[in-house]
C-alpha cells in the first residue's frame, strides 16, 4: 500500500513538473521584451484571440513558431503606434482571413457553426420527448389484464415448467 502511495506521489509530482515547464520557458523568452507592461498586457490579450496559422491549434500567444513571433512583433509595433485593438485585429483578418480569429464572427457562413449545436440539442430533445410519449401511449394500450384464454395458456406453460 505504501509503495502505491509513493508511486502516485511520483506521478503527481511529474505531472506538476510537466505543467510548470512551458510556463517557465515562455516567461523567459517574453521577459526580455516586456519593457512596457501595459503594452505587453494588451499584446498578450490580443494574441490569445488570434490563431497561429502554422500550428493551428495554438494561438499566437502560446506558439513559438517563427510566424507567431513575427506576428507578435507586428502587434507590438502597432500598439506602439497607438493603433486600437480593432485596427490590429482587422490587420490580421485582412491578411489571414477570419480563420485567424479564435472566436469566429456570427455571419452568414458561420451560422451553422453557431446555431448547429443548439438546433441539434432541440432536435434531440424533441425526438426523445416524442418517443417517450409514444411509448407511454403504447404501454398504456397494452397494459390490460390477461383474457381467460391467455390466462389458461400461461397456467399450462407454468405447469409444464414445474413438471421438468
Amino acid at each position: 500500500m505504501k509503495r502505491l502511495f509513493a508511486k502516485l506521489a511520483a506521478i503527481l509530482a511529474f505531472g506538476l513538473y510537466l505543467n510548470a515547464t512551458p510556463a517557465l520557458a515562455s516567461s523567459a523568452t517574453e521577459a526580455a521584451l516586456a519593457a512596457d507592461p501595459v503594452a505587453e498586457k494588451r499584446l498578450t490579450k490580443l494574441s490569445e484571440e488570434l490563431r497561429c496559422l502554422v500550428c493551428q491549434n495554438q494561438n499566437i500567444a502560446d506558439s513559438n513558431a517563427e510566424l507567431a513571433q513575427d506576428l507578435r512583433r507586428e502587434i507590438r509595433g502597432m500598439i506602439k503606434e497607438g493603433k486600437s485593438d480593432k485596427e490590429i485585429i482587422d490587420f490580421m483578418v485582412a491578411r489571414y482571413g477570419d480563420f485567424v480569429l479564435y472566436r469566429p464572427p456570427v455571419q452568414g457562413n458561420t451560422l451553422l457553426l453557431w446555431v448547429g449545436p443548439i438546433a441539434l440539442l432541440i432536435f434531440g430533445l424533441s425526438a426523445l420527448i416524442a418517443y417517450q410519449r409514444r411509448r407511454a401511449a403504447r404501454v398504456a394500450a397494452e397494459d390490460k389484464p390477461l383474457s381467460a384464454d391467455e390466462a389458461s395458456r400461461a397456467d399450462a406453460l407454468l405447469k409444464e415448467l414445474d413438471n421438468k
Partner: peptide, 8 residues
C-alpha cells in the same frame, strides 16, 4: 485544414 482561403 492547411488550405485556408485567403482574403487577399
Amino acid at each position: 485544414p492547411r488550405d485556408v482561403p485567403s482574403p487577399l
